[in-house]
Nucleic acid binder design. Structure first.
Lengths: 251, 251
DNA sequence: AGTACATTGCGTCATAATAACACATTTGAA
DNA sequence: TTCAAATGTGTTATTATGACGCAATGTACT
């Protein structure tokens, strides 16, 4: 609870927060987990504070697990946001008013905050979004239809997506975003959605299989319109190896 | 002065610092600007604190300008370090003892600190390393001969170099590390030094010129042994364009 | 002055990666 | 039964890459 944190703020790193951009993939859409706070018209990224005796990475994992219930997911720090105007006094005071905390006692919250951005890739179907309380709404929202966000959260989200796009060229993705069994067209849609551009079906197949991280299963997807596509799974060992060594070395 | 900052710590963001990994290139060596603090056996990265009314990027620029005297340089945030054990109490107390500040008054410094890492690429010859005071030594040190560093500064340095290596595949570099006029072999040495591997002379020339950011000058380098190599300069417009759009798109 | 040697500039060639496209197959729906 | 939409498996031309060859240039040494 935010109120508890503010009242026991000596147990938390001052002026520093964490915000998570949690990506999922469903219905051919790249979705982001967003929170609607009752006291604001805007939505926000799931975030949290850093216990004084915890690594920042650990604090980020806590936020993620708390919101998704999923463990062992892909989580990566991508940038730290510290513009002086990023959190205005006004927003903090709104929160205090809502929580019925006096301005003096809530000073910890209205001080200047720097936030560390993490992005996560999770399996949409395994995720059960959890709201922290009754008034809070937490929802998967298509990244193309993100509503107005509080503070600089839009900027954080954009930067996360931009980072994800870049990292697509440096490492394989999909293991964390797709179910265990999936089809090549599904994987391609994921790539197309993240990159926001069409790729050639046949060239994609060749390139993705050449990486050597896919295992073709002796099974076809059922209950589909048109020709049933083959199912694949990731070869976790090879996947991890490529993750570690990177792809597209360049030089 | 650190003492002033501690005494006026209400003007600074608490528990948050900045550390800069400043790279330069000279004598075919990738060098890092390091500081020797009198009260410690170890060296450290140039760093600083964040004025409560300044963007973190601005604070990083201030650190950089203050140490190098160079302006308009390449400066990029690459990671934030926040392990709980990264700054031990012991180190902070040493500093306080050296500065003759009572433990109680110096509590601001011995609290838990998270640090934001920036790396910079500067022109070695245009840089005049500046020490903050008489007792402090600041020096260019070959990245292969870095001595013991305080706290987790070695980890920060390693991560900066690793980031630089990755970014070499995503963008052109050299504009900030080399003098205005340079030779292809010099540029190749820079790449080889950063990547820590040999590249083929002829293939390097082809690949680097194909990027389209180099202008061949009608001039040869003088006072050199053996055949005089041609001089080149960067085409700033095209360089910036490639910087913006990136290279090696992959997908 | 002549020669050896290191280094540069400009090539070639075989192979791999990429982009663009053709055609047959499978399946649900008209 | 036929059509439309999607999948599976190719082909071909172009480009990029990796591994070399060789002549030109300038220093250093005899």
């Amino acid at each position: 609870m935010l109120k508890d944190i503010i009242e026991n703020n000596q147990n938390y790193q001052p002026g520093l927060s964490i915000d998570c951009v949690i990506f999922g993939f469903h219905d051919n859409q790249l979705k982001v987990l967003l929170i609607k706070i009752p006291h604001s018209k805007s939505w926000s990224l799931p975030g949290g504070f850093i216990p004084i005796d915890q690594d920042i990475d650990t604090a980020a994992v806590t936020v993620l697990n708390g919101r998704t219930g999923v463990e062992g997911i892909f989580l990566r720090q991508f940038a730290t946001f510290g513009k002086i105007k990023r959190n205005d006094q006004h927003f903090g005071k709104e929160v205090l008013e809502y929580l019925k905390i006096e301005e003096e006692k809530g000073k910890w919250l209205t001080q200047r905050f720097v936030t560390i951005g993490y992005y996560a890739l999770v399996d949409f179907l395994k995720t059960i979004p959890k709201s922290a309380n009754k008034e809070e709404v937490i929802e998967w929202i298509d990244h193309k239809e993100v509503p107005e966000l509080i503070l600089d959260h839009k900027e954080i989200l954009d930067k996360a997506l931009q980072t994800l796009r870049t990292e697509l060229n440096l490492m394989p993705i999909g293991y964390n975003l797709l179910p265990e069994k999936f089809t090549i067209p599904e994987l391609q849609k994921l790539y197309e959605t993240i990159l926001d551009k069409k790729l050639d079906r046949r060239n994609f197949l060749r390139k993705i299989t050449n990486i050597g991280i896919l295992t073709k299963l002796d099974e076809k997807k059922s209950n589909v319109a048109h020709k049933a596509p083959n199912l694949y799974s990731f070869d976790k060992d090879k996947y991890d190896e490529v993750l570690k060594n990177g792809l597209n070395q360049g030089w």
